[in-house]
Amino acid sequence: MPDTTGLRPIESEMLTAATKETAVRHGFFTREGGVSSGFYAGLNVGMGSDDDAGDVEENRRRVGAWFGVGADRLVTSFQVHSPHAVVAREPFKGEKPRADAVVTDTPGLVVGIVTADCAPILFTDAEAGIVAAAHAGWRGALGGIVEATVEAMEGLGADRERIAGCIGPAIGPDAYEVGSDFRERFADADPEFEAFFSPARDEAHAMFDLPGFLAHRLAEAGVRADTVDRCTYADEARFYSYRRMTHRGEPDYGRQISAIGIMED
């Protein structure tokens, strides 16, 4: 049995309350409790990284074991910063689908997404027995990954009035500096999106509030929402960060996982 004693996943009080007395379990995993080393040190689950493949596999086994399932029952997609959600009722065979949200109603299947500054969002309609995990970088957030995930859950029988969604650890508004072109994309989509930008030291740039923007999208979708207020860039001890890696000129970076599943009796 893989060692799970060092794992320190963050759990949302709102999701925990929403799934009380049900078999749904969730966790926003940190880099704590893994076997990777170097700048991957910890629980790196990024299969696209250049980390030792055996270490990544062991880290995924540990996450699966925390849920009480094998690593083969921990289902993730090939993330491409899209607004696409897929349904999984069994582990994917062969090439993984290119999508940024995975939805399931199958007990014993844990759906997850990996991040390193982008926002993870975990969803549940516990009454219907439907859960989802979504990956929301700025492209997916603007393009509609929240809405696509909710619609996919509804396709399985969820009711959006019962859906709860929690935004997990992501790059915070004090660390996410963007250029004018980036800001214009949002303003062109909806002038009200200007509310999620604030001044940066460089007058040609701005700071973007990704978690705040996603909370807005969840509210607009009619989903009650919660946010885990943790900045992946600022907290190196607990989180991997793509932007921190680029600022340091490191050659690669790890990824943390956020996952949710309906446990079997």
Rank of each mutant, 00 (worst) to 15 (best):
S180Y: 04
D229S: 15
R60C: 08
T104V: 04
F208N: 01
D50K: 14
P173H: 06
M1R: 14
R183P: 05
A148N: 11
A18I: 04
A71L: 08
L7H: 12
G70I: 06
E220T: 08
F78M: 07
G165I: 05
A18G: 12
N44M: 06
T149Y: 05
S77G: 03
E21G: 12
G48V: 03
D117V: 05
R248P: 02
R238E: 06
V102N: 09
I10N: 06
H247T: 05
I121A: 13
F29K: 05
G168I: 06
F239I: 00
R8N: 04
G27F: 10
G129Y: 00
A71P: 13
E58F: 03
P211R: 04
K20V: 13
V63C: 14
A23Y: 05
F78H: 12
H216F: 15
F78P: 00
T106Y: 04
E13W: 03
V86A: 11
G143Q: 09
T30H: 11
F196Q: 06
H81Q: 15
Y233D: 07
R185E: 13
G108S: 01
D226M: 00
I171M: 14
D50M: 12
A175V: 03
V80F: 09
D52N: 15
R98G: 07
A158Y: 13
A215K: 09
R238F: 02
G129V: 01
F186K: 10
G112E: 03
S258Q: 09
G137V: 05
L142N: 00
A136G: 07
R60Y: 02
V24T: 13
V102C: 10
A85C: 04
V111N: 08
A189H: 12
H26Q: 13
V35P: 08
M263S: 14
A99S: 13
G129Q: 03
R73A: 11
A18D: 07
G129W: 02
G54P: 12
V56F: 05
F92Q: 00
G27I: 08
I130W: 05
V223Q: 12
E161N: 14
A23F: 05
D100E: 11
A187Y: 01
A170K: 01
V110W: 12
M47F: 04
V24R: 12
G112F: 03
I10S: 07
E95D: 02
S37V: 08
M153H: 10
D3Q: 09
A99Q: 03
W138H: 14
G249A: 06
S37D: 06
A187V: 10
A128E: 12
R162I: 07
R244D: 00
H205R: 14
I257S: 04
F92K: 00
G157Y: 07
V86D: 08
A18E: 04
V24N: 11
D229N: 15
F67W: 09
G54R: 13
V228C: 06
P251Y: 04
A158W: 14
T4C: 15
T22V: 05
E203R: 15
D209S: 09
W66T: 06
S37Y: 00
G157H: 01
S241N: 11
D117M: 08
Q256R: 01
G168H: 10
D252Q: 02
D3L: 07
H247A: 13
F29A: 04
G34Y: 01
E220R: 15
T5K: 15
L214I: 14
G64R: 03
L43W: 05
R89N: 05
G168T: 08
F123H: 00
P169Q: 04
D52A: 14
Y242M: 11
V80M: 15
A119R: 02
L218K: 01
G254T: 03
